[in-house]
Design a binder for these strands. Structure first.
Length: 278
DNA sequence: AATACTGTTCGCGA
DNA sequence: CTCGCGAACAGTAT
């Protein structure tokens, strides 16, 4: 679920609430969700949050880093003095880890499908873990020219290249579909055949789509799987252009949105606005 | 009841 | 290299 915008919203929220606090305890309810020795993080202070693609890094004052990947259904929900949302979204049968902080608020790592994880890494281990990730979409290094050169490297359908975290990082299925629609590029276009002009368009579409989503608090699609750390839903799902809209009229030309499968992922596009030009 | 589908990623074999 | 597929899991939709 959480793609770049959702992880960024979580990062901004946690930075505001947890920076400077110490980790007082960690309760592990599912062993596979936490990789590393919990003792190494106890009583350590949080000094920095950062994000690369869909991965969140929490820096501690002993040089170690908690690297978080939420995969499909991971949530980070704060449990202190929060009202107005169902208890089940805070601590539930999907709760896998519970952190307690010095103030003493709690942070729940919920993960229905158990794909997500939090790892304890040293700085060099973090570098190794992330060395193959492409530039983050919000990084100054990610430019239209860079996008174009990355697209030039592959003969695969462009949507698969956008989803490949090694070519660039942060794009997931929702934003890949919507950004391609905005740029009027068919998802099956052979990547290296995309023109520089199209790449520039796509660059702006990616940035725009993702920035607007951060402002909207991220996308809470179907099952309320994505929630902000205060338990509230995002609002970007009301701005979906093609994602999960198959059969519904295109917002530009009214043609019904089509759906196909690419590498097993649902792929949505307007057959009129996004012509295959190979 | 059985099958398909889901916001992710990795590894395998063709 | 590329591709499809299954696996890691659990829940909902059809």
């Amino acid at each position: 679920m959480p793609e770049l915008p959702e992880v960024e919203v979580i990062r901004l929220f946690l930075e505001d609430k947890l920076l400077g606090l110490s980790i007082k305890s960690l309760k592990i309810l599912n062993q596979k969700s936490f990789i590393g020795d919990p003792k190494r993080i106890l009583n350590r202070k949080i000094i920095k949050f950062s994000r690369l693609g869909k991965q969140l890094s929490i820096y501690l004052d002993n040089g170690l880093i908690l690297l978080v990947h939420l995969k499909m259904t991971g949530q980070l929900i704060m449990g202190n003095h929060m009202f107005g949302h169902p208890t089940k979204t805070i601590s539930s049968k999907s709760t896998r880890l519970i952190f307690t902080f010095s103030n003493p608020s709690k942070l729940f790592f919920n993960d229905q499908r158990k794909f997500g994880w939090i790892k304890v890494l040293s700085k060099s281990e973090l570098a190794v873990a992330q060395k193959n990730l492409g530039y983050d979409i919000f990084s100054p290094k990610f430019t239209a020219q860079h996008l174009y050169s990355q697209l030039q490297k592959s003969s695969r359908p462009i949507k698969l290249v956008l989803l490949d975290q090694h070519s660039m990082s942060g794009i997931g299925n929702i934003y890949a579909n919507d950004a391609l629609f905005l740029a009027k590029v068919h998802p099956q276009t052979i990547s290296k055949k995309v023109t520089l002009k199209q790449a520039k368009n796509l660059y702006h579409s990616l940035i725009k789509t993702m920035k607007l989503s951060v402002l909207a608090g991220g996308s809470t699609a179907r099952d309320q799987i994505y929630l902000r750390p205060d338990g509230t839903v995002g609002k970007n799902q009301f701005s979906f252009r093609v994602y999960q809209r198959s059969g519904l009229p295109c917002l530009v030309c009214k043609t019904p949105i089509k759906r196909l499968k690419l590498a097993g992922r649902g792929t949505f596009f307007c057959p009129k606005c996004q012509k295959l030009s190979n």
